[in-house]
Design a protein around this nucleic acid. Structure first.
Length: 1083
RNA sequence: GGGCGAUUAGCUCAGCCGGUUAGAGCGCUUCUCUGAUAAGGAAGAGGUCCCUGGUUCGAGUCCAGGAUCGCCCA
C-alpha cells in the first residue's frame, strides 16, 4: 500500500499514500482484508442500512465435510456481487450463512474413516449413537477452510450466525412444516422401487449401483399368455422370471405396430419388429395393429401367471405406455410393480390395476426383504416356494419348468447383459419396492407451475425448459431415507397402524413426558407415547404405544426449509421471517434445478406460500482447458488457493464475471485470468498510479488551487468527455446489474477504464505535468466513480483506490452506488464528436503509415472530409486531432470532390420493408442515380424520387448510403463517409521541428539510460552534425523545456565530456549526435 | 432413449427487431509511438458463422432435420 504520507494536511486532490506501480495484487488484497477487519466494514455496511428496505438473499447451504473447490468460488462470488451492489444502492441486505449438515455423503465419509461399509456394521459394531456423533464431528471437518476461503475471496457472509441444518431449532421448524403437510393429508406411506441388496438388506445409491455392474448370463424367457375371451396368446419377454409371481398386468407401446402371427398351430401376438428375430423367417403374419388397438381389441389376459393363495383366477389388464420399446424382447412386457420402477409407475396410473400408491397395502409383493418368497406363491402342484431365494438358479429352473408344464412357455434362451451387483458382497441387486414416505407434490402441480411463473430465471430458458419440464412431470417426493444421520422423520405409529406426526418438541415432550436435548437418532427413537388416535365418533383414544418410524428425511427437505427454519419460525422470529420472505435473489449451479431450487419451491407451495424467490441465477459447470469435467480422479481439478495466491481474488472474480455469461459454463484457463489482470486490473492500477504520481509531484500547484471543484460547464472538452463517458458507464452498469448481467456490466467498466487510460490520460499528460487542476479533478472523479462501479466486482482494488483518493468513508463499500444525479450530465453530442475525432485520428495515422512518415515529423496540413454535424464535431476537437496527427492545421472540405467522388448505395434496412419483393429493382434504381446529385440533394434536404414497378418513392437521407470512391494521387484513408488526407510536403521549417523532436526523444532516452528521475533537472550538451545543431538552435526553448535542462551547450567546444556523468553517441535522421548530461546540482 | 443448452478467426468471446464487405481481445508477422502502463497505435495473415433443407427480396440471426460436445433425467 505504499508508505503513508502522514505529515501532509489532507487535501482533496492529494492522495494519502504513494503507490507502487508494480504492486502485487494478492498482497494488496491481504492488506485490504486487514483494513476491513480493523474498521469492521461488513458489519458497518449493514448498520448503515438499518431501517432501509430489505433486499433478500438466501444462502444455499453447502456441506463443509469436504474442501471447497473452484466451482464453489464461482457460486460464492456471484452470491457476493449482487448483494454488494444492492447494498450500495441503499438496500439492507442481510447475508446469513448456512451449512447443510446431514445426509449420505457425511455418512459415507464417516464409514470410510471408521473402515466400515454396511448398515449392519453401523448398527451392530459402532452403534447409532457413536456413528452419529462421528457424523456431527465430521460434517464440520473443513469448516475452517470454508470460512477462510469465503473471507479470502471477499464474499461477505455472516458466518458467525450461520444456520445449520443439524441445529435443534432448525429441526423443530422442519418438523413443524412436515406436520403442516401431514395435516393437509399430503404425507403418505407408499413404496419406492430401489436398487436393493437382499443380503446386506440395504438400499444402494445410484453411485453405489454404478460401482457394481458385471456382465452376466440370465435366462431370457418368452411367455405366451392367453388373452381373455379368445385363443390368441400374447408373447411376453422377461429376463427376471422370479418377478412373475408379482405380475399384475402387461404393457405394450401405444404407437408401435403389433402383429398376429400363426406359429406352431397357435396364434401369437408380438411387436411386428420382433417377429423375425423371435419366431424366424417362416412365421405368417395374419394381421397388424397398433399397440393402442391391441389394448382395445384384447383388453386383458388370463392370470395370475403363478397361482397364489390370496389371488383368484381371472383377468389381468393390458396397458399401454411409452416406456415399452421394441428394441429387444417381444414389445410386450410384464408388469410387477413391486420390482420395477416403470412397472410401479404404470400400474399406479392405471385405474384397472387395483393398486394405489398412497395405500401401502395395495402393492402386491410376494418377496420378503431378505430376497426369499413368502408363503403365498404356489407351484403348479400347489406347493409353496416359501423361503426360496429368488435368484437361486435351481429355483429359476423350477419356475421355468412349471411354466412349460402349463404351456405358458414358448422358449428359453440365454441372455448376456450388464447387471448391477452389490459392490460390497457381489450379490445381484433386486429392484425392489421398499416402504417409503412420500409427499404428494404431484397433487400441487398446478400450484407449482403457477409459482414458477412468478420467478425470473437467468438464463430465461431454465424457466420453461429444464425447471418447468421437471415441474410438469412432477412425481411425488420420496421423502424418507433408511439412514441414520439426518432429521428424523417425526412420524409415530402404534401397533394398530395409527399414524401421528409430531409438530414441535413441546408436543413430543407433552405426549411422552420426556424432554430431549438432542432430537437426532438414536435418542428420538426411544421416545414413545400413547397413541392419541380416536375414531370418527370421537370417543376414547387408542392409547397403544406409538413408536417413531425408523427413517430420516431427505436432506433436500432440510435445505428447502431454510427460508423459515433458519429463523426457527414459527416458534420465534416471526417478524424476521416475514420480512425476509421471499428472497429477491438466489444463485446456485444449474444442477440445483432438481435440488435446492425445487425443494425451496415445493416446500413453499406445500405451505401455500408464494414462490420463495424472485430471481434465480443458474451457474454453469467449470470445465478444464480441454473442455473436460474437472475431477480429482482425473487430476485436472484446479484448486482455488494457488490461483488466489498467485493472481488474487479480484482477478479470479473478474474472470468469472466477465469472461462469459456464467450459465454457459467455463473453460477454466489460468491464461485468461492472467489476461484479465494485465488488460484490466493492471491498466486500472497504472492509471491510478499515474494520478497519484503526478498529484504528489504537483502538490504545490494543487494546494494553491484550493479544493473547490470547477464548474463542469467551464471544463475543457476532454474533461467533459471523460466525465460524460463515466456517467454513461455508470448508467449502463447499474442497468445491467439490475438485470443480473454482471458480464455486460463488467465489460462496460473495462471499456471505460480503457478509454480513460488510452485516451484521456494519453491526451492529458501535459496538463498533469503542468499541474492543471481541472485535469486532476476530472481524473480523480472518474477513478473514484470507477472504484464505486467496480466495488461489487473487485472489492479489493476498488477499495484501495477509493481509500487513497478519497477515504472520507471507511470503505468504498459504504458508499452509494453512483447515480446519474451525482455525476456530471451526459453530453452525448460530445461523446459522438470524440468518437469521430478518434476515427479521424485513426484514419490520419493510417495515411501516415502508408506514406511511411513518422508521427514525430510534423506535417503542414491534414485535410478532413466531413460535413454538417460531423464537421462541427471534429472541428470542436480539432486541437486533439492536430496534436495526435502532429499537423499544423486541420482543414475541412465539405464536398468530397476534392478528394474523390461519391458512391451511392441503397439502405436495405429502410428500403427493404417498403419494397419487399421489388427490392432488387429498387436497388438497381438507386444505383442508377447520379451520386453527386444524390449527395447534393441529401445535403440540401431536397427530395429525390425513384419509381419501381409503377410505385413512386421519395428517398430520404436514411434511404441511401453515401461512400467515398477512391481518389487518384492522394494519400488518403477512407472509411464510410469519412476520409483524411495528409499534405506530405516537408519544408525546411517542418524538417527542423521534426529533428528537434527527434533530438528530444534521444535525450529522453539518454536520461532514462542515465538513471535519472522524471523530475530531475539536467545540464546538457549536444554535439554532432551541423544541421542537427541548427535545428536544436532553432528549437532551443522547446528542447530545454521538454528535457528539463537548466543549461544547454551546443557544439563541440561546449562539451568537455569529463565533466558530465553520462554521455552517448547516437544518430538522428542518420546524422551523428552526441548527448552529454548530468544532474543539475541546484534548481 | 427423452429434455435443455452450446457450436462464429489458431485461442477466448461479441454479434440487437433478419438488411447485403461478420467484429473484439489474445496469439502471430511487419512497422510505429512512448518519461504512468509487461501498455498504446497502424498494417497484414487468419472465417464453409457445424451440416442439409426450408421460409424470405434478403439468413450467422427464423423454422425443420441431422452431426458433435456438455449437462440433466431414464
Amino acid at each position: 500500500m505504499g508508505r503513508l504520507v502522514s505529515d501532509r494536511p489532507p487535501h482533496q486532490l492529494i492522495p494519502r499514500r504513494e503507490v507502487d506501480p508494480r504492486q502485487e495484487l494478492p498482497s494488496l488484497e491481504l492488506e485490504v482484508l486487514e483494513r476491513w477487519r480493523e474498521r469492521d466494514v461488513f458489519a458497518e455496511s449493514l448498520r448503515l442500512r438499518e431501517g432501509a428496505e430489505q433486499w433478500v438473499f438466501y444462502e444455499g447451504p453447502p456441506t463443509a465435510n469436504g474442501p471447497p473447490g473452484t466451482h464453489h468460488v464461482l457460486s460464492r462470488v456471484f452470491k457476493d456481487i449482487y448483494p454488494r451492489f444492492q447494498t450500495m444502492r441503499g438496500y439492507r441486505v442481510e447475508r446469513k450463512g448456512g451449512w447443510d449438515c446431514h445426509g449420505l455423503p457425511v455418512e459415507i465419509a464417516v464409514e470410510q474413516k471408521l473402515g466400515i461399509s454396511s448398515k449392519a456394521e453401523i448398527e451392530e459394531k459402532i452403534g447409532i449413537e457413536a456413528f452419529n456423533a462421528a457424523c456431527r464431528e465430521s460434517v464440520f471437518a473443513y469448516l475452517e477452510e470454508w470460512n477462510r476461503l469465503t473471507g479470502r475471496i471477499g464474499f461477505w457472509l455472516d458466518l458467525d450466525h450461520a444456520y445449520r441444518t443439524l441445529d435443534e431449532t432448525y429441526i423443530e421448524s422442519v418438523w413443524w412444516a412436515l406436520a403442516q403437510i401431514a395435516q393437509r393429508e399430503l404425507l403418505y406411506e407408499g413404496h419406492k422401487v430401489v436398487p436393493y441388496c437382499p443380503r446386506c438388506e440395504t438400499t444402494l445409491s445410484s453411485h453405489e449401483v454404478a460401482l457394481g455392474y458385471e456382465d452376466v448370463v440370465d435366462p431370457s424367457v418368452y411367455l405366451k399368455l392367453q388373452v381373455s375371451g379368445g385363443e390368441d396368446r400374447l408373447l411376453v419377454w422377461t429376463t427376471t422370471p422370479w418377478t412373475l409371481p408379482g405380475n399384475v398386468a402387461v404393457a405394450v407401446s401405444p404407437t408401435a405396430s403389433y402383429a398376429r402371427v400363426r406359429a406352431g398351430g397357435e396364434v401369437l401376438v408380438l411387436a411386428e419388429d420382433r417377429v423375425v428375430p423371435v419366431l424366424g423367417e417362416q412365421s405368417e403374419i395374419l394381421e397388424r395393429f397398433s399397440g393402442s388397438e391391441l389394448v382395445e381389441r384384447y383388453g386383458s389376459y388370463r392370470g395370475p401367471i403363478f397361482a397364489a393363495e390370496d389371488r383368484e383366477e381371472g383377468e389381468l389388464p393390458i396397458l399401454a405406455d411409452e416406456f415399452v420399446t421394441t428394441q429387444d424382447g417381444t414389445g410386450i412386457v410384464h408388469l410387477a410393480p413391486a420390482f420395477g420402477e416403470d412397472d410401479y409407475r404404470v400400474a399406479a396410473a392405471a385405474p384397472t390395476v387395483p393398486f394405489e400408491p398412497t395405500r401401502a397395502g395395495t402393492l402386491y409383493n410376494p418377496v420378503r426383504p431378505d430376497g426369499t418368497y413368502d408363503g403365498r406363491t404356489r407351484s403348479r402342484e400347489g406347493g409353496s416356494y416359501e423361503g426360496r431365494f429368488v435368484k437361486d438358479p435351481a429355483l429359476t429352473e423350477e419356475l421355468i419348468a412349471d411354466l412349460r408344464e402349463r404351456n405358458l412357455l414358448l422358449k428359453v434362451e440365454e441372455y448376456e447383459h450388464s447387471y448391477p451387483h452389490c459392490w460390497r458382497c457381489g450379490t445381484p441387486l433386486l429392484y425392489y419396492a421398499k416402504p417409503s414416505w412420500y409427499i404428494a407434490t404431484s397433487r400441487l402441480r398446478d400450484e407449482l407451475l403457477a409459482a414458477n411463473e412468478t420467478v425470473n430465471w437467468y438464463p430465461p430458458h431454465v424457466k420453461h425448459g429444464r425447471f418447468g419440464d421437471w415441474l410438469k412431470n412432477n412425481v411425488d417426493w420420496a421423502l424418507s431415507r433408511e439412514r441414520y444421520w439426518g432429521t428424523p422423520l417425526p412420524v409415530w405409529r402404534c401397533p394398530e397402524g395409527h399414524v401421528h406426526v409430531i409438530g414441535s418438541f413441546g408436543e413430543l415432550a407433552e405426549r411422552s413426558g420426556k424432554t430431549l436435548e438432542d432430537h437426532h437418532r438414536p435418542y428420538v427413537d426411544e421416545v414413545t407415547f400413547p397413541c392419541p388416535h380416536t375414531d370418527d365418533e370421537g370417543g376414547e383414544p387408542c392409547g397403544a404405544p406409538a413408536h417413531r418410524v425408523p427413517e430420516v428425511i431427505d436432506v433436500w427437505f432440510d435445505s428447502g426449509a431454510m427460508p423459515f427454519a433458519q429463523h426457527h419460525f414459527p416458534f420465534e422470529n416471526s417478524e424476521t421471517f416475514e420480512e425476509r420472505y421471499p428472497a429477491d435473489f438466489i444463485c446456485e449451479a444449474q444442477d440445483q434445478t432438481r435440488g435446492w431450487f425445487y425443494s425451496l419451491l415445493a416446500i413453499a407451495t406445500l405451505m401455500s406460500w408464494p414462490a420463495p424467490y424472485r430471481n434465480v441465477v443458474c451457474l454453469g459447470l467449470i470445465l478444464d482447458e480441454e473442455g473436460q469435467k474437472m475431477s480429482k480422479s482425473r487430476g485436472n481439478a484446479v484448486e482455488p488457493w494457488p490461483v488466489l495466491d498467485s493472481y488474487g481474488a479480484d482477478a479470479l472474480r473478474w474472470y468469472f464475471f466477465t469472461s462469459k455469461q456464467p450459465w454457459d459454463g467455463y473453460r477454466f484457463s489460468l491464461e485468461a485470468i492472467g489476461e484479465g489482470v494485465r488488460l484490466f486490473l493492471k491498466q486500472l492500477w497504472s492509471t491510478y498510479y499515474f494520478y497519484v504520481l503526478y498529484a504528489n509531484a504537483a502538490e504545490q500547484d494543487l494546494r494553491r488551487g484550493g479544493a473547490d471543484a470547477s464548474d463542469p460547464a467551464d471544463l475543457p472538452d476532454l474533461d467533459r468527455w471523460a466525465l460524460s463517458r463515466t456517467a454513461a458507464t455508470a448508467e449502463l452498469v447499474a442497468e445491467r446489474l439490475d438485470a443480473y448481467d454482471a458480464t455486460s456490466a463488467g465489460r462496460a467498466i473495462a471499456g471505460l477504464v480503457d478509454e480513460l487510460s488510452n485516451w484521456y490520460v494519453r491526451r492529458s499528460r501535459r496538463r498533469f505535468w503542468d499541474g492543471d487542476i481541472s485535469a486532476f479533478e476530472t481524473l480523480r472523479t472518474c477513478l473514484l466513480t470507477v472504484s464505486k462501479l467496480l466495488a461489487p466486482f473487485c472489492p479489493f482494488i476498488a477499495d484501495e483506490i477509493y481509500d487513497n483518493l478519497d477515504g472520507s468513508l471507511a470503505s468504498v463499500h459504504l458508499c452509494d452506488f453512483p447515480r446519474a444525479a451525482d455525476l456530471a450530465p451526459r453530453d452525448e453530442e460530445l461523446e459522438r464528436a470524440m468518437e469521430l475525432a478518434r476515427e479521424t485520428v485513426r484514419l490520419g495515422l493510417g495515411a501516415r503509415g502508408q506514406a511511411k512518415i513518422k508521427v514525430r515529423q510534423p506535417l503542414a496540413e491534414a485535410v478532413v472530409v466531413a460535413d454538417g454535424r460531423e464537421r462541427l464535431g471534429i472541428e470542436r476537437l480539432a486541437a486533439v486531432v492536430r496534436e495526435e496527427l502532429n499537423v499544423r492545421r486541420v482543414r475541412f472540405v465539405a464536398a468530397a470532390e476534392e478528394l474523390g467522388s461519391y458512391e451511392v448505395k441503397p439502405n436495405y434496412r429502410t428500403l427493404g420493408p417498403v419494397f419487399g419483393k421489388e427490392m432488387p429493382l429498387a436497388a438497381q434504381a438507386v444505383a442508377a442515380l447520379d451520386p453527386q446529385r444524390v449527395a447534393a440533394a441529401v445535403r440540401d434536404g431536397g427530395a429525390l424520387g425513384i419509381a419501381v414497378g409503377g410505385r413512386e418513392h421519395t428517398l430520404t437521407s436514411d434511404d441511401v448510403i453515401l461512400t467515398m470512391r477512391a481518389p487518384d494521387g492522394y494519400s488518403v484513408e477512407r472509411e464510410g463517409a469519412h476520409a483524411v488526407a495528409l499534405d506530405l510536403a516537408i519544408d525546411e521549417d517542418l524538417r527542423a521541428e521534426g529533428r528537434a523532436r527527434e533530438i528530444v526523444h534521444a535525450i529522453q532516452n539518454a536520461r532514462k539510460t542515465a538513471g535519472l528521475q522524471v523530475e530531475d533537472r539536467i545540464e546538457l550538451a549536444l554535439d554532432g552534425d551541423a544541421s542537427l545543431l541548427e535545428a536544436a538552435t532553432a528549437h532551443r526553448d522547446y528542447i530545454v523545456r521538454e528535457t528539463l535542462a537548466v543549461e544547454l551547450a551546443l557544439g563541440g567546444d561546449a562539451v568537455g565530456a569529463a565533466t558530465f556523468d553520462y554521455s552517448e553517441h547516437t544518430e538522428v535522421d542518420r546524422l551523428p549526435l552526441s548527448i552529454s548530461l548530468r544532474r543539475a546540482q541546484s534548481q
